[in-house]
Design a protein around this nucleic acid. Structure first.
Lengths: 193, 193
DNA sequence: GTCTATTTGGAATGATTGTTTTAAATATAG
DNA sequence: CTATATTTAAAACAATCATTCCAAATAGAC
């Protein structure tokens, strides 16, 4: 009996993500989203609840996209050094691809929303925990392979690496020189040896 | 003949800074500013032009405050290592002081505004250039004192340090553990040796 | 004290905000 | 084909947005 959703939900999320990424949560109006997605205002409220609901789905969509991008980069690596290099390669690649200087949506949302909305705060906390666990895993492997030092715990190095990644995403907004970014990464990798 | 400004401009900017820092540019309304500063709406437009004009003065005010804070921390240092330690000490101190997780206003403004407003973009570019020059100076001193290595140029190390500082300011929003933050700093300092 | 430039207070502006409502269109199950 | 659940479209909603305007208050120069 039901009339099913006619629009392509993934396509709608893709367009909504572009807008939120470019203008931020508070900078994006419902009208912006209606215009960009080309679906009706009511359909947005029907399918996503409200602006915040849509934003959370957008964050999830963006997160999945990033993860897929990461996974592809490191799928064919056979040791910890190559894996961590793959991670930083992906980060630098995304920075240089970002010609209109939007930065990382997850980083932007952290600074815009974490102190304003508990749902977003939880989402970001969860994201960071997963990133830290992911990085810690790599460091543990590297330490077992005896290519990373054990002066500092894998847990601590993971936090260091995550900090640098976030720093790169900030620096990269205004700084698209690949050689300079790569030089930073080399300094980071050297500190793990 | 003229009636002079009756309100304390510095006090007004201080209050406005608190609001913009907490809610971001787009999240702050003119009504918020009227309420917080307790001066009249017309006085704001009279003295600051418009919302953006006020925001730029706020950024300048915040920047000066940060610089003074920095300067005090490093005024009594006699070598490059102590100076750079002082810088990171100041950063970590600010992070822990930031109990309501607002982050750094300049970092927040970078991710919110750089791709939306050319005036803000220029301001941030200028700020970054000065920070990089400041850090480069310290590294040059450290290299001359032979306590920092010369494998990488001072210019490159400055960019690395600035990236880590921005990363710390992001990580620090959700991560207030002083020992863990200090451990990151130690890893960074070790890579300069 | 008078004159005058400036700052005030508060209302008014029109545009835009996020969300709801109402009715028509639509697609599927029976 | 009919019944029905859902999606549409567009208007309407009150609230809030940044900004402007105007009259009243004010403070320093003469």
């Amino acid at each position: 009996m039901p009339k099913t959703e006619t629009f392509d939900r993934k396509q709608v999320l893709k367009k909504a993500t572009e807008i939120f990424h470019s203008k931020g949560y508070n900078g994006t109006s419902m009208q912006d989203l209606v215009d960009a997605t080309t679906i009706n205002r009511s359909s947005i409220y029907n399918s996503f609840g409200n602006k915040l609901g849509m934003f959370i789905e957008v964050l999830t969509y963006y997160q999945n996209d990033s993860n897929i991008h990461f996974s592809k980069k490191i799928a064919t690596t056979y040791n910890a050094i190559d894996t961590i290099k793959g991670v930083f390669d992906a980060v630098v690649y995304d920075i240089i691809k970002d010609v209109d200087c939007k930065g990382c949506l997850l980083v932007n949302s952290t600074s815009e929303m974490v102190n304003q909305n508990d749902t977003i705060r939880s989402f970001i906390e969860n994201h960071q925990d997963r990133m830290l666990a992911f990085l810690e895993d790599i460091v543990i492997r590297g330490q077992m392979e005896r290519v990373f030092n054990t002066e500092v715990t894998a847990h601590q190095y993971a936090l260091y690496l995550y900090t640098v990644i976030q720093g790169l995403q900030m620096t990269g907004i205004l700084h698209k020189n690949k050689e300079k970014l790569t030089s930073i990464v080399e300094t980071v990798l050297k500190s793990l040896e």
